[in-house]
Structures are given as C-alpha cells and as structure tokens.
Design a protein around this nucleic acid. Structure first.
Lengths: 195, 195
DNA sequence: CTCACATTGAGAAAAAATTCACAAACCAAA
DNA sequence: TTTGGTTTGTGAATTTTTTCTCAATGTGAG
C-alpha cells in the first residue's frame, strides 16, 4: 500500500490526473487485479471505463494509512542514531515530527540538536502531555532500552519503535515494532550466496 | 528463519541440548508444522521420536544464511547514521564487520571513528580489493546516494544497503536493499488508528 | 526383544492469497 | 440514442501457503 502511495505521488508530480489499474500495476510491479482488490478493500475509488483519479486516490490512501495528519514523536537516547533520526528528511516529509529529544546523560541535557533541546528522560511524562506525543522512539544502548520503554509507557504513549537490539516488555495495549539492521544485512549476504 | 536462529541461540545459552518442533514453535509464536516444513526445506536435521539438537540446528541455519563466515562492509557517508552503524553492537555480533569508512568531505578525511580512519570515497575501489569488501552501505544525504552507488559498483561490490531515501540505479547483477525508517512509523500509526 | 510413548517428515486437506474472467458501468462519437 | 471501446468491481478459478494427519522411526523401560 505504501508502494502505491509513493508511485501515486510521483504520478501526481508528473501531472497525471487519471491512472488505470493496469498502468499502476506496471509501475508497482504487481498484477492489476491485485491493485483493484486492494483498493476495493477500503472503498470504491475507481470509475468504470475510466480509471482512478490520481489525487483522490492518493488522498484516500493517505487517510487510510493515517498520513493525512502529523504524528508527534519523542526520541529517547540522543547518540549518533538519535541525532541522525532528528535530522532525517524522509521522516518529516511523511508527516512525522520529532518534537522531543530525551536523554539521561546530565552532560547532554540542555544541548541543542537542530532546533530541539535535549531534555532529561525523567521529564518525559510531563513533556508527553504538553507536546501531545503519540510515538516513542528508543535509540539508547541496549542496557538502557527497557528503562526507556518504561518511561514511555509511564507517559501514556501507546506506540514504540525500538532501534536497540533488545526485546522490551510492555503492557498489551502498547504497540512495539523493532528495527533490526542485521536483518537487512542477512538478506544481502543470503542473496550473495544463493541466487 | 532469523527468528528461529535467535530463539535457538537463547536456548543454547540456557543450556538446552534438544528441542522439539512444538516447543520451538511456541517460543517463536508459529505452528509446529511450519517449523518442520521450513527446516526440512534445506535438509533433514531432526531425529524422529527425539527432536532437534539445538547446537547442530543453530549451526545449520547459520550456514544456510551465510552467518558462519564474516562479511566485510564499507560505509559511504560518515554522518550521524554512518557513525551509529560503525559502533552498532548487533551488526558485529552477527558476523558483519565494518572495515572501511568513506566520505567525500575533505575536512572529515583522516578523522578517526572508533578504530577506523575516514578515507576519501575516490579510494573506495582500491580499498575494496585490499580489504575484500563484499557489502556497501550508503548513509549519505539523498543527493549523494547515486554517486556513492556508482563508486561502490565501480569497486566491484555486488551488494548495497541504501539508508538514503532515494532510489538508486545499478547494474542487474548488483543486489540493492533499502532501509526506510518511515515504513516502521507508518506501521505504528496505522496500528494506532485501526486495531 | 517387545511394547509404549514421543516426534519427525511428508502427503493430504484446508485456508489464504493471487490471478482470471466477465458483467456492469462509464465515456465519446456518430 | 445507440454503438464501440475502456476499465472497474467482484465472483470463480487457480496457485501458494499453512495446517492437519499419520506412517516411519527413534528412545527407554520391562
């Protein structure tokens, strides 16, 4: 679905107003029926005999994916990875705003990263309400990840993205996703061995 | 498959010598038949009436995935993200070694990151042979990504991991994989909206 | 050695995902 | 208005994936 969105945005930028499922399928590298099934799943957007209106469809998918609003994120752990994410283009562009930078290290607190000031992790709860933070991102060293998660949960945030290579345990109503760099490398080396 | 491996490593650390497909399935959160099919796919490792020998199975999977040897990687683009990867634990632990750090910026060249010295990207080809680099990792800004890719291809490296939010074009015999942080965030916000 | 029990490997069955195929609907031109 | 050319939406057919089932095989006790 995210692939369709990306292609649709490119089409819109090129000034295309209407696209058929077969052309879109070609651009996405999938089967036309696949596209029609996927799109029919959350509404009827096409016009028979015509195709899909690029802008309308793009907006509908964005709405479906929740990309028509901005999401406020907090980063916990301001090392190299945290700083990289704060400055990362693609994240901003998709409607995700990093509005808080948290760390435990007293020497870092008060330091500026971009236009954010690093705040003590203990103040996460207070700041989460003030800044309406919906997603917490953990970029601490592994041994601090669980503590970071605890602070995030405590602050009432219901979604966590964990970059630290450790499993964390949270209540059932909190969604967690893991970014594992090694997975990508395993895929590549696997491909290098087997066709 | 990578999940099985992780669980097996934990089991081995706990001193377990034998595991049945049903127990392993429980730990991985999948169906026992699934496990047996997956494992049977690349050999017969189990013993009927007994189960699987944890260490043997772990080694077999590692071999299958190509994790029984070390892979040499080069990072092109030494910003925050590049530095984060160089220092990242999980990567080293899986047998991937970052052996080269490359950047275009003359002010960075010669600087030390961990025990690596930043080298000019133009010397990538020469260094790739010397260091036997098999995987190139792009962590440049988007507008430099294609140029980085060109240098990597030029150096005869056949696998690229691109962290930059741009598509790159390379010859057919070069494998490319993309790390898109926004995908993870989209998943989380989607889950926050729909169950 | 034989028997009772446990567990794999693999074929059969079931479920899920993908693709096909075509009626229904739309547009444009005559 | 009618006709011909498109393209969607959807039920049917197909393919793929997952799960079930059970004979084959191994262990250990008697």
């Amino acid at each position: 679905m995210a692939v369709y969105l990306q292609v649709l945005e490119e089409l819109e930028a090129e000034g295309e107003e209407i696209i058929s499922s077969s052309k879109l399928a070609q651009l996405c590298g999938v089967n036309p029926s696949q596209i029609r099934k996927d799109l029919a799943y959350f509404g009827e957007f096409g016009v028979r005999g015509v195709g899909y209106y690029v802008t309308d469809l793009k907006e509908s998918i964005k709405h479906f994916l929740g990309l028509d609003k901005t999401w406020n994120c907090a980063i916990v752990g301001i090392g190299n990875l945290g700083r990289a994410l704060i400055n990362h283009r693609a994240i901003k562009d998709k409607g995700y705003r990093i509005v808080g930078a948290f760390d435990w290290d007293p020497f870092k607190i008060g330091e500026k990263v971009g236009d954010l000031e690093i705040i003590c992790t203990r103040r996460l709860k207070e700041k989460a309400k003030e800044l309406n933070i919906q997603i917490g991102i953990i970029t601490t060293p592994p041994n601090r990840a669980q503590r970071a998660a605890n602070h995030i949960v405590e602050a009432g945030i219901k979604a966590i993205l964990n970059f630290s290579p450790t499993r964390i345990s949270v209540p059932d109503d909190v969604i967690v996703d893991y970014v594992e760099f090694s997975r990508y490398l395993i895929y590549l080396s696997f491909k290098l061995i087997h066709g």
